[in-house]
Amino acid sequence: MTVPFIQLIDVTKSFGTFHVLKGINLSIYKGEILAIIGKSGTGKSVLLKHIIGLEEQDSGRILIKGKPLYQLPADEKRSFQYELSYMFQDNALFDFFNIYDNIALPLLENPVFPKELVKKKVFTRMKQLGLIGTENKFPAQLSGGMRKRVALARALVTDPKMVLFDEPTTGLDPVRKKNVHSMIQEYQEKFGFTAVIVSHDIPEIFNVAQRIAMLDKGIIKFEGLKNDILDSHGKILKAFIRGEDI
């Protein structure tokens, strides 16, 4: 049986008296696109932040290639952390940096990369995402869709092995949404990274993801292949897909 790249076992998290995650069990396999769906406020972003280490679970375990992070040898731990990338829901671009510097930041802060290589990598991503010509502009001077693409370029510039997307299409028009989805799919096929996408775009996300997990009230209600979701008899799942409140 394949060992999941990342596995969450009974992960719980509370903020004060508010229990956000109530025992999450989820497996993420190498090279797949996993979509996490669910109503707003069910803890999808919090779950994503646990995977990348921005939040620490109250209880439960997060296994990396079958081992807890703290048990990995220092080298392996560091290289795993460098393999991850995160695209924030609101982009989290730096207002005081121009677009070039925003995209280049993860490389510039790492002295291993010579400046010429950084420039090449940044311009390659900018070209792929249609951002050429914006390098000297500031985030506030760009449209919402372009800022999204800048955030995507920044997330991909380090050639990560795994990218976590927190609602990458929020606030985009249907055409841009489709573009972002196909871009993720295309790059995932091209670079072979593992992708976890938190999304509300039903049913579009089913065309992008290979597996779906549904989070509801702090627990995973469904986890499986996208074809299984349509055959599923889960009441909550079906209602959510149909956009009904239960």
């Binding site: 460098y82 991850l84 995160y86 730096f94 207002d95």
Partner: peptide, 25 residues
């Protein structure tokens, strides 16, 4: 104010996801 805005707009979290020490930065 600047660092506060960076905190609430998740820019500090973004630094952490890029393996940049936000306090050093």
């Amino acid at each position: 104010a600047e660092i506060g805005v960076m905190r609430i707009s998740e820019q500090i979290d973004a630094l952490r996801t890029m393996h940049i020490n936000p306090v050093r930065f």
